[in-house]
């Protein structure tokens, strides 16, 4: 009984996701405004990043506040490979993903012994060390950063001067991939292991879950996807410096949609991004222009309000199951 319910829910999730993606794909054909398209690209990108963060921190319960490291590594690998060696960004993004996944496992090896706040702070300081090293690495542009040279619209080099559409479709694809990977992992051996590790690592270990390996797996998948997002972001803004791709605020911004939408849930990160990113961008451009911080007050107030009012995330509001339970 339970099993068919679960299988039905998973099938329904997949159908809903397909429909939403199809609708999203048509929207920019009607909405031509560049400003709005820009917000849509950012929304999809942050949704994808948060979805990837959610794999390690939501499902596996290892709260990382240092994912900016992988985002920055993806951005830097892609950009450096292209500007120094002429490697196309498509390979750069994959390369950045692989490098980040390997580094995530290397760092996970000592860090996954840590618990709770000690782990979270370790992730913060590791990302900060990365930031400071890039700040002082002359070959990689140091504090000045790197500008990606534009040579006309090209799919090969994945750069477009005017149109936002190609970026939009890439961001949509990335969000779909991150969502689908999460969907697929939810019902895999790894997915069950991760939830067991999150709830009670000792009990999981005693039942034969290899806790350490499952954390490493989650870290690798999560870092890979975030780095691809970082590579994309570098192409999208065509200029990177250490602060703008590896700053601490990126780690928090990555976590925020998942937390507000519903941490450790399939739909939470995307839902959180759809609400949060447009609000951020709109407040920034309509009331932030004065430079007087009103946008920060609205944004911060929203974070406090949602996290206090719905600690389990907004996603529960849309779940039919919950409505039944209430009735």
């Amino acid at each position: 009984m339970m099993d068919t319910d679960f299988a039905n829910r998973r099938r329904r999730d997949l159908i809903v996701a397909f429909c939403l993606a199809a609708i999203a794909a048509i929207v920019p054909l009607f909405v031509k405004d560049v400003y709005v398209q820009n917000i849509m690209v950012l929304t999809l990108m942050w949704g994808a990043l948060s979805q990837s963060w959610n794999i390690l921190s939501g499902y596996c319960g290892q709260i990382s506040l240092g994912h900016a490291l992988y985002f920055g590594l993806g951005a830097y690998t892609t950009t450096l490979l292209f500007t120094k060696f002429g490697v196309l960004p498509w390979f750069g993004m994959l390369g950045g993903g692989v490098i980040s996944a390997v580094i995530a496992m290397g760092l996970g090896y000592p860090c996954f012994r840590l618990r709770g706040h000690y782990f979270a702070i370790a992730t913060i300081v590791i990302a900060e060390i990365g930031l400071l090293l890039f700040h002082n690495w002359d070959w990689a542009g140091a504090a000045l950063g790197i500008t990606i040279p534009m040579s006309g619209d090209s799919w090969l080099k994945f750069q477009f001067a005017r149109s936002k559409l190609p970026y939009f479709y890439f961001a949509l694809a990335l969000a779909c991939v991150a969502w689908f990977v999460t969907w697929w992992l939810e019902d895999s051996k790894w997915g069950y292991w991760w939830r067991a590790v999150k709830d009670n690592p000792e009990a999981a270990e005693s039942l034969g879950v290899v806790v350490f390996n499952s954390k490493m797996g989650a870290a690798a998948v999560s870092a890979f996807l975030v780095a691809v997002g970082g590579g994309f972001y570098a192409q999208f803004v065509s200029y990177i410096d250490p602060e703008s791709v590896m700053g601490f605020q990126f780690s928090l911004l990555m976590a925020l949609p998942a937390v507000l939408g519903g941490i450790g849930t399939l739909w939470g990160p995307m839902l959180g991004a759809v609400i949060l990113i447009p609000v951020t961008e709109l407040t920034r451009s309509f009331i932030g222009g004065s430079g007087r911080g009103v946008d920060l007050i609205v944004y911060g107030g929203l974070i406090i309000a949602i996290s206090l009012a719905r600690p389990q995330g907004l996603v529960g509001l849309f779940s039919p199951k919950r409505k039944e339970a209430v009735r």
């Binding site: 928090l252 976590a255 925020l256 937390v259 507000l260 430079g291 007087r292 911080g293 009103v294 946008d295 920060l296 007050i297 609205v298 944004y299 911060g300 107030g301 929203l302 974070i303 406090i304 996290s307 206090l308």
Partner: peptide, 16 residues
């Protein structure tokens, strides 16, 4: 995140 939100609000208020 509630204290992080507070931090952002405080920074905004200080800027304002």
């Amino acid at each position: 995140f509630s204290t992080f939100g507070l931090a952002i609000v405080m920074r905004g208020v200080a800027q304002f």
